Simulated assay, not measured.
Amino acid sequence: MRAPTTGDPVTQHQPRTPDDAHTRQILDLVTRGHAQSRSELASQLGIAASTVGLRVQSLLDSGLLQEDGVGTSRGGRRPRVLRPASDGGSVLTVDLGGRHARIGKHDLSGALLEVRSAEVDLSAGPVPTLAAISTVFDDLTRDDAAPIRAIGVSLPGPVNVETGAVDQPSRMPGWPGFRVGDHLRSRFDVATITVDNDANLAALGEHRAQFGLSKHSITVKAGTAIGSGIIVDGHVHRGASSAAGDITHTRIDGSGDIPCSCGNTGCLETVASGASLVRQMHELGRGDVQVVGDVLALARDADPAATTLVRTAGTHLGQALSGVVNFFNPHAVFLTGSMSASEPFLAAVRSRVYEACHPLATQNLRIEAAMTGADAILHGAARQALEGLELPGPAS
């Protein structure tokens, strides 16, 4: 399959032909449990039963779906129940961070079956990092008879999804221009390998869990750094140069002249990220604080300095989000990452957004911690990889 063209938010993973479109829609509805029979598929898709039958048969023949028992009759013959094939293969995913990686194994429904953690060092470069990940992939699938169907990779930097390479990352020496998908494809016999930014995949994973293929949302990953992804009608919105949703470098009023990794000063990252909270605690003489988790733990224990910094960070994030909410009018804003577990942080974000936005923009707006938690990125990577699968043509 030709790599998707960057910049189109809705057609990013859309099929190229009507036959492919119907097959992909059928696979999506069955794997997400929204349809279990040919008649339900025909009703939901508004296409002829004969067309559904041909597409379903091609998915059965390819081993992506299976028939499992019979359903409830509605006056005629009892329908055969369709499910993702239990032995149809697996999808592997990886959420790469600066010092660690979370690696997942999924079935063809996208359900997460197993998670492993591995120590990595992105600064060592892509080849040794991906070698460590490949070792875990091998271990996860060592006893599998069925093939690896797809691999989804999350990287902590801007990604050109057409090439599968990071583009102008701030803290990934040796990675710019390195084609991660091509490298893994040479190691594993897998046609479908997708690569994307971690914030986009967190947004996709959370949105699909909450809304499926409808509605609009923003997901903010607030941890050591800050990133966000935008979802339109269930698909990642990337913008003209794949920079949509990057609120990290929004200039914040009253932030001072703290230099940012982008070369400007006063960006959101310099006052609201976990790294900035650690820096500010050091400036207050709290040398015992080493990581953002230490700041959050102090805030939970009602430490005045830590609590004030956490709430202020939430207010700054809410300020940056308010303009986006007014302009985009999403159904929900989801927060993930370590800071999303802090109630003072979450309350401050809500307060600032509701205060600064037009009432119509917040009338039905949900602002809450992500339900998928630490697994949001893995779920998003699996969903994107599944949507990139090469699908069979209609059965003859």
Rank of each mutant, 00 (worst) to 15 (best):
Q66W: 00
L321A: 03
D233G: 04
A332S: 15
T163P: 04
L113E: 15
D19E: 13
G274W: 00
G76H: 09
H379I: 01
S217V: 11
Q290W: 00
P126L: 14
N264I: 05
L184R: 02
G104Q: 09
S109I: 05
V278Q: 07
G53E: 14
I151F: 15
R102P: 04
A132I: 06
G263N: 05
G75N: 01
G205K: 15
G323K: 07
T129N: 01
A35H: 03
G254Y: 10
L277W: 02
A225Y: 01
V136T: 14
A35E: 00
N326R: 04
P176D: 15
R171K: 14
S73G: 08
L298R: 15
L112M: 09
S90E: 08
R99P: 04
C262K: 08
G323S: 12
S261F: 01
G287W: 01
E343I: 03
P359W: 13
S261Y: 02
I230V: 15
T141D: 11
Q290E: 13
V52R: 07
R142S: 04
T315R: 13
E206F: 14
Q210N: 10
S170Y: 10
V153Q: 14
E343Y: 01
S73F: 00
Q57N: 12
A313I: 02
A203R: 11
A165L: 14
V325I: 15
L92I: 10
G7E: 12
D121P: 01
A272F: 01
S351W: 07
N160M: 04
R38W: 01
D189T: 13
S186D: 12
P4N: 11
A131W: 00
R83D: 06
T93H: 03
H358Y: 14
A395G: 04
G227S: 05
L54G: 07
L296E: 03
Q57H: 13
G287Q: 13
R185Q: 15
T308R: 12
M371R: 14
G227R: 01
A49L: 08
F178M: 10
P79I: 11
F334V: 07
A374E: 15
A49T: 08
Q12D: 06
P176Y: 00
H316G: 10
V94P: 02
R238E: 07
T248S: 15
L29T: 02
R142V: 00
V278A: 12
A370K: 02
A199H: 08
D198Y: 14
D19Q: 12
S170D: 10
D143Q: 10
A165V: 13
D68P: 06
A374M: 07
S228Y: 15
L65Y: 11
L321V: 08
G287F: 02
A150I: 10
A341E: 03
R32Y: 09
L386N: 09
M281S: 05
S342A: 14
G234K: 08
R116F: 00
V292S: 13
G323Q: 06
G229A: 04
V94W: 11
L140V: 00
G46R: 03
A381D: 06
G223W: 04
L389N: 10
T250A: 14
D68L: 05
P304H: 03
L360A: 05
T192K: 04
D253N: 04
P18A: 09
A369E: 02
S117W: 07
A48M: 06
L27G: 04
